[in-house]
Structures are given as structure tokens and as C-alpha cells.
Design a protein around this nucleic acid. Structure first.
Length: 112
DNA sequence: ATAATGACGTCGG
DNA sequence: TCCGACGCCATTA
């Protein structure tokens, strides 16, 4: 091999990859919280890092299906998110600011 | 190396 | 219901 050294495993990139994969698997009309995803991956550093991944790579996945544990969408994107929710028929507890998804009904578990 | 920041979550007032 | 304080942890200044 002409590689200078074994490619250093990038735990961060690996984590990000898994996060994006999970988000992409959330069906329309359903949502997961940052904490849910962190818990599902179970080896991730925590919910905040899930948020970081979405802040950077979120444009490539259905980011509006990832919200806070209290049902409120990502800060600064509540307007765009609401539009998606209405379109997907996501159960809402409040369709007017503060926009809130009905977590009890909309919460999705990354079922295999 | 220490401090501040951030697409979080939980608790107390 | 709304807001602030803490704890958490990678990234940035």
C-alpha cells in the first residue's frame, strides 16, 4: 500500500454518518428528537453533537423531522418546518408559533 | 491551556 | 406557559 499510514478511524465522521442515516430513515409525518437519535446510536457523545451534525449536513436529509424533545422544531427554521408538517400531515399540538409537534403521536423509533 | 459557544435535555421558579 | 440555571461535550476563539 502506498498509503502513508492506516487511515485513522474518524469516530466523529462515523457518528455523523450514522446520524444522517437515521434521520433519512424517519418516515414522513413522524419525528425524532436529538436525544432520541443520540440514544438510538447509544455510543454517540450526546444530543448536542447530533444537533451539530444536522447544523452542518442537515441540508442533505429531512432535518425538519428532527426536533427538540418538547416538540419545538429547530431554532430559526420553525417556519419552513411548519410548512413540511402541514404537507406531511404531522400531528401538531400547535400550528401557530410556538410551533409544536405532538410528540406523543408523532415520535418515531428507528425501527429496523 | 482556559473560556465561550451551540439545531440539547431536565429541573426549578 | 415562559424563562433561567445546570450538566453535557465537541468545536472555536
Amino acid at each position: 500500500m502506498t498509503e502513508p499510514a492506516a487511515r485513522p478511524a474518524d469516530p466523529i465522521a462515523d457518528f455523523a454518518s450514522h446520524v444522517l442515516d437515521v434521520v433519512d430513515a424517519i418516515p414522513p409525518g413522524r419525528v425524532m428528537s436529538y436525544g432520541d437519535i443520540a440514544e438510538y446510536l447509544a455510543e454517540g457523545p450526546g444530543p448536542r453533537q447530533v444537533g451539530r451534525v444536522l447544523a452542518v449536513y442537515g441540508s442533505a436529509v429531512p432535518w425538519w423531522r428532527v426536533i427538540h424533545s418538547d416538540g419545538t422544531p429547530a431554532p430559526g427554521h420553525d417556519e419552513a418546518a411548519l410548512s413540511r408538517y402541514l404537507d406531511e400531515g404531522t400531528p401538531l399540538r400547535s400550528a401557530r408559533p410556538p410551533v409544536r409537534v405532538d410528540m406523543r403521536r408523532a415520535r418515531w423509533t428507528a425501527a429496523p
